[in-house]
Amino acid sequence: MKTKKLIFTAFLFFAGLVVSQAQIDTRIGAELAYGTEIENLGIGANAEFGVLDNLSISPSFIYYFPKEEGPIKVNWWEINGNVNYYFIQDEGFHLYGLGGLNYTNVSIDADIDYGDFGYSVDSSDGRFGLNLGAGANMDLGSNIMPFAELKYVIIDGGQLVLAAGVKFNI
């Protein structure tokens, strides 16, 4: 539990520091994601803080919907801290590469019943990994900016994550 609090506190501190330093576009948003390792959909929140004309810092959080396979229930979430480098920033279309850090937490609960006998198993594990990928923003000329992102999380087993959503200029 202390690890979760420490990571969350560090994430908030880092995000606050970036907001105070950003002088370029700042965006917050929501996303729908699919992870190939968990093979399930997730919902998330993201932000993007401009640092330079073609560089931004982008923290995000994705919570994958719980997955049940028989008596086993899997919960999976991830926190990401990425750097986006914009290769193309044409009017209406922005293409970027991304790289960053990932923390993934997986917990498994199992309630197994054998007639008069039964047992419960509860386990959780968290791992750090690296993100590599690319994304695109569609600038519609308003405060709403749809985006799509594809990243590979380099971690035990690895996971490809496809995400799409909207960012709002603030």
Results as ranks from 00 to 15, higher is better:
Ala134His: 01
Gly99Asp: 03
Leu101Phe: 14
Met138Asp: 00
Asn84His: 15
Gln89Ile: 08
Leu132Trp: 07
Val74Thr: 12
Ala134Gly: 13
Ala136Phe: 02
Lys73Gly: 05
Ser120Asn: 04
Asp113Cys: 02
Asn131Arg: 12
Ile79His: 01
Asn102Glu: 06
Asp90Ala: 09
Leu98Thr: 15
Leu132Asn: 04
Met138Gln: 03
Trp76Ala: 14
Gln89Ala: 09
Val121Met: 06
Ile79Thr: 10
Tyr103Leu: 08
Thr104Asn: 11
Arg127Asn: 13
Val83Asn: 04
Leu130Asp: 02
Ile108Glu: 07
Gly115Leu: 04
Asn80Ala: 11
Tyr96Asp: 03
Asp116Ser: 14
Phe128Glu: 14
Leu130Ile: 14
Pro71Lys: 04
Leu132Thr: 10
Tyr119Val: 02
Glu68Ile: 01
Asn75Leu: 04
Tyr103His: 13
Ser120Leu: 01
Trp76Gly: 06
Gly118Phe: 06
Ile72Thr: 11
Gly115Phe: 00
Val121His: 01
Ile88His: 05
Tyr96Gln: 03
Ile112Asp: 12
Gly115Glu: 04
Val106His: 06
Trp76Val: 12
Ala134Phe: 05
Gly92Ala: 09
Ala110Phe: 06
Gly81Gln: 09
Leu95His: 06
Asp113Ser: 08
Ser123His: 10
Ser124Gly: 14
Lys73Val: 04
Ile79Lys: 01
Asp109Tyr: 10
Phe93Trp: 00
Gly70Leu: 13
Asn75Val: 05
Leu130Phe: 12
Asn84Tyr: 08
Tyr86Ala: 15
Asp113Thr: 09
Tyr103Ile: 12
Gly99Val: 13
Ser124Ile: 03
